[in-house]
Protein backbone atom coordinates (compact mmCIF):
# COMPACT_ATOMS: atom_id res chain seq x y z
CA UNK A 1 0.00 0.00 0.00
CA UNK A 2 1.43 3.42 -0.90
CA UNK A 3 1.87 6.26 1.57
CA UNK A 4 -0.83 8.20 -0.22
CA UNK A 5 -3.36 5.39 0.05
CA UNK A 6 -2.56 4.91 3.77
CA UNK A 7 -3.21 8.61 4.42
CA UNK A 8 -6.40 8.41 2.40
CA UNK A 9 -7.48 5.37 4.37
CA UNK A 10 -6.80 7.15 7.66
CA UNK A 11 -8.77 10.20 6.58
CA UNK A 12 -11.57 7.95 5.40
CA UNK A 13 -11.66 6.17 8.72
CA UNK A 14 -11.42 9.44 10.60
CA UNK A 15 -14.46 10.68 8.71
CA UNK A 16 -16.45 7.54 9.33
CA UNK A 17 -15.56 6.53 12.83
CA UNK A 18 -16.73 8.50 15.83
CA UNK A 19 -14.11 6.90 18.02
CA UNK A 20 -16.87 5.69 20.33
CA UNK A 21 -17.56 2.20 21.51
CA UNK A 22 -20.23 0.77 19.20
CA UNK A 23 -22.00 -1.22 21.91
CA UNK A 24 -22.23 1.81 24.15
CA UNK A 25 -23.38 4.03 21.30
CA UNK A 26 -25.98 1.42 20.41
CA UNK A 27 -27.30 1.44 23.98
CA UNK A 28 -27.55 5.23 23.97
CA UNK A 29 -29.50 5.11 20.69
CA UNK A 30 -31.79 2.47 22.20
CA UNK A 31 -32.32 4.71 25.22
CA UNK A 32 -33.21 7.58 22.86
CA UNK A 33 -35.93 5.38 21.37
CA UNK A 34 -37.08 4.59 24.91
CA UNK A 35 -37.38 8.32 25.62
CA UNK A 36 -39.80 8.53 22.71
CA UNK A 37 -41.67 5.43 23.90
CA UNK A 38 -42.20 6.73 27.42
CA UNK A 39 -42.67 10.24 26.05
CA UNK A 40 -45.72 9.08 24.13
CA UNK A 41 -47.14 7.31 27.18
CA UNK A 42 -46.47 10.28 29.49
CA UNK A 43 -48.02 12.71 27.00
CA UNK A 44 -51.18 10.59 26.75
CA UNK A 45 -51.33 10.23 30.56
CA UNK A 46 -51.05 14.00 31.01
CA UNK A 47 -53.68 14.57 28.36
CA UNK A 48 -56.16 12.25 30.07
CA UNK A 49 -55.28 13.49 33.56
CA UNK A 50 -55.78 17.15 32.70
CA UNK A 51 -58.77 16.82 30.39
CA UNK A 52 -60.59 14.06 32.28
CA UNK A 53 -60.01 14.78 35.98
CA UNK A 54 -60.74 11.67 38.02
CA UNK A 55 -61.37 11.22 41.73
CA UNK A 56 -59.38 7.99 41.45
CA UNK A 57 -56.16 10.01 41.51
CA UNK A 58 -56.94 10.58 45.20
CA UNK A 59 -56.42 6.85 45.81
CA UNK A 60 -52.70 7.08 45.02
CA UNK A 61 -50.45 6.69 48.06
CA UNK A 62 -47.57 9.19 47.87
CA UNK A 63 -45.85 7.81 50.99
CA UNK A 64 -45.80 4.22 49.73
CA UNK A 65 -44.58 5.19 46.28
CA UNK A 66 -42.09 7.66 47.77
CA UNK A 67 -40.55 4.73 49.64
CA UNK A 68 -40.46 2.75 46.42
CA UNK A 69 -38.78 5.69 44.68
CA UNK A 70 -36.11 5.70 47.38
CA UNK A 71 -35.56 1.95 46.78
CA UNK A 72 -34.99 2.53 43.06
CA UNK A 73 -32.65 5.48 43.71
CA UNK A 74 -30.65 3.29 46.07
CA UNK A 75 -30.40 0.61 43.39
CA UNK A 76 -28.88 3.18 41.02
CA UNK A 77 -26.22 3.82 43.64
CA UNK A 78 -25.45 0.10 43.98
CA UNK A 79 -25.21 -0.22 40.17
CA UNK A 80 -22.69 2.58 39.91
CA UNK A 81 -20.72 1.06 42.79
CA UNK A 82 -20.81 -2.29 40.96
CA UNK A 83 -19.29 -0.60 37.90
CA UNK A 84 -16.60 1.03 40.03
CA UNK A 85 -15.81 -2.37 41.55
CA UNK A 86 -15.72 -4.07 38.12
CA UNK A 87 -13.30 -1.47 36.79
CA UNK A 88 -10.87 -2.05 39.63
CA UNK A 89 -11.14 -5.83 39.40
CA UNK A 90 -12.90 -6.03 42.79
CA UNK A 91 -15.02 -9.12 42.14
CA UNK A 92 -16.37 -9.31 45.70
CA UNK A 93 -17.58 -5.70 45.52
CA UNK A 94 -19.09 -6.31 42.08
CA UNK A 95 -20.98 -9.42 43.25
CA UNK A 96 -22.19 -7.68 46.43
CA UNK A 97 -23.48 -4.62 44.58
CA UNK A 98 -25.11 -6.59 41.77
CA UNK A 99 -26.84 -8.75 44.37
CA UNK A 100 -28.05 -5.64 46.21
CA UNK A 101 -29.27 -4.20 42.91
CA UNK A 102 -31.27 -7.36 42.18
CA UNK A 103 -32.76 -7.34 45.70
CA UNK A 104 -33.69 -3.66 45.44
CA UNK A 105 -35.17 -4.18 41.97
CA UNK A 106 -37.25 -7.06 43.30
CA UNK A 107 -38.32 -4.91 46.27
CA UNK A 108 -39.43 -2.16 43.89
CA UNK A 109 -41.51 -4.65 41.89
CA UNK A 110 -43.00 -6.06 45.10
CA UNK A 111 -43.93 -2.52 46.18
CA UNK A 112 -45.51 -1.84 42.82
CA UNK A 113 -47.41 -5.12 42.99
CA UNK A 114 -48.70 -4.19 46.45
CA UNK A 115 -49.78 -0.77 45.16
CA UNK A 116 -51.57 -2.31 42.16
CA UNK A 117 -53.37 -4.82 44.40
CA UNK A 118 -54.43 -2.03 46.80
CA UNK A 119 -55.77 0.13 43.98
CA UNK A 120 -57.66 -2.76 42.41
CA UNK A 121 -59.22 -3.55 45.83
CA UNK A 122 -60.36 0.10 45.98
CA UNK A 123 -62.02 -0.29 42.60
CA UNK A 124 -59.42 1.37 40.38
CA UNK A 125 -58.64 -1.07 37.57
CA UNK A 126 -57.21 -0.81 34.04
CA UNK A 127 -60.80 -0.76 32.76
CA UNK A 128 -62.50 1.35 35.44
CA UNK A 129 -61.72 4.71 33.84
CA UNK A 130 -59.47 6.52 31.39
CA UNK A 131 -57.28 7.54 34.33
CA UNK A 132 -56.98 3.94 35.53
CA UNK A 133 -56.22 2.71 32.03
CA UNK A 134 -53.47 5.28 31.39
CA UNK A 135 -52.07 4.84 34.93
CA UNK A 136 -51.73 1.06 34.71
CA UNK A 137 -50.36 1.23 31.16
CA UNK A 138 -47.66 3.76 32.09
CA UNK A 139 -46.58 2.28 35.42
CA UNK A 140 -47.00 -1.28 34.10
CA UNK A 141 -44.62 -0.68 31.21
CA UNK A 142 -42.13 0.87 33.59
CA UNK A 143 -42.44 -2.15 35.87
CA UNK A 144 -41.81 -4.39 32.88
CA UNK A 145 -38.58 -2.46 32.22
CA UNK A 146 -37.54 -2.95 35.84
CA UNK A 147 -38.23 -6.68 35.47
CA UNK A 148 -36.00 -6.83 32.37
CA UNK A 149 -33.32 -4.94 34.32
CA UNK A 150 -33.67 -7.34 37.23
CA UNK A 151 -33.15 -10.36 34.96
CA UNK A 152 -30.17 -8.59 33.38
CA UNK A 153 -28.70 -7.91 36.84
CA UNK A 154 -29.06 -11.59 37.74
CA UNK A 155 -27.39 -12.60 34.48
CA UNK A 156 -24.51 -10.21 35.20
CA UNK A 157 -24.33 -11.56 38.75
CA UNK A 158 -23.95 -15.11 37.43
CA UNK A 159 -21.26 -13.92 35.02
CA UNK A 160 -19.45 -12.06 37.81
CA UNK A 161 -19.48 -15.19 39.98
CA UNK A 162 -17.77 -17.03 37.11
CA UNK A 163 -15.14 -14.28 36.99
CA UNK A 164 -16.44 -12.88 33.69
CA UNK A 165 -15.72 -9.25 34.59
CA UNK A 166 -12.52 -7.57 35.65
CA UNK A 167 -10.13 -4.74 34.94
CA UNK A 168 -10.62 -3.76 31.30
CA UNK A 169 -13.63 -6.07 31.01
CA UNK A 170 -16.35 -3.98 32.61
CA UNK A 171 -18.25 -2.93 29.49
CA UNK A 172 -21.10 -5.37 30.18
CA UNK A 173 -21.67 -3.82 33.61
CA UNK A 174 -21.49 -0.30 32.17
CA UNK A 175 -24.07 -1.06 29.45
CA UNK A 176 -26.38 -2.65 32.03
CA UNK A 177 -25.84 0.39 34.25
CA UNK A 178 -26.90 2.78 31.49
CA UNK A 179 -30.16 0.86 31.09
CA UNK A 180 -30.80 0.69 34.84
CA UNK A 181 -30.11 4.40 35.42
CA UNK A 182 -32.38 5.28 32.52
CA UNK A 183 -35.19 3.23 34.07
CA UNK A 184 -34.51 5.14 37.30
CA UNK A 185 -34.72 8.49 35.48
CA UNK A 186 -38.03 7.47 33.90
CA UNK A 187 -39.38 6.67 37.37
CA UNK A 188 -38.19 10.02 38.72
CA UNK A 189 -40.29 11.70 36.01
CA UNK A 190 -43.27 9.35 36.50
CA UNK A 191 -43.27 9.88 40.27
CA UNK A 192 -43.60 13.61 39.70
CA UNK A 193 -46.10 13.46 36.84
CA UNK A 194 -48.38 10.82 38.36
CA UNK A 195 -48.14 11.26 42.11
CA UNK A 196 -47.00 14.80 42.88
CA UNK A 197 -48.60 17.21 40.40
Amino acid sequence: MTTHSVEHSDEFRAGRELGLNHVKLGMWLFLASEVMFFGGLISSFLHYKLNNPSLESGLLDVLLVGGNTFVLLTSSYTVVMALAAARTGNTAGLVRNLLLTAVLGAAFLAGQGYEFASLIREGMTPTSSVFGSSFFTLTGFHGLHVLVGLLWALRNLAKALRGGFGEGRALGVEIFGLYWHFVDIVWIVLFTVIYLI
Binding site: K24, L25, W28, L31, S33, V35, M36, G39, I42, S43
Partner: peptide, 13 residues
Protein backbone atom coordinates in the same frame (compact mmCIF):
# COMPACT_ATOMS: atom_id res chain seq x y z
CA UNK B 1 -22.68 12.97 21.57
CA UNK B 2 -24.33 10.71 24.17
CA UNK B 3 -25.85 13.76 25.86
CA UNK B 4 -27.19 15.03 22.53
CA UNK B 5 -28.66 11.58 21.79
CA UNK B 6 -30.55 11.64 25.10
CA UNK B 7 -31.53 15.31 25.14
CA UNK B 8 -32.87 15.55 21.55
CA UNK B 9 -35.83 13.18 22.10
CA UNK B 10 -36.31 14.61 25.60
CA UNK B 11 -36.89 18.03 24.02
CA UNK B 12 -39.45 16.43 21.69
CA UNK B 13 -41.06 14.83 24.75
Amino acid sequence: LYAYILVAPAILL
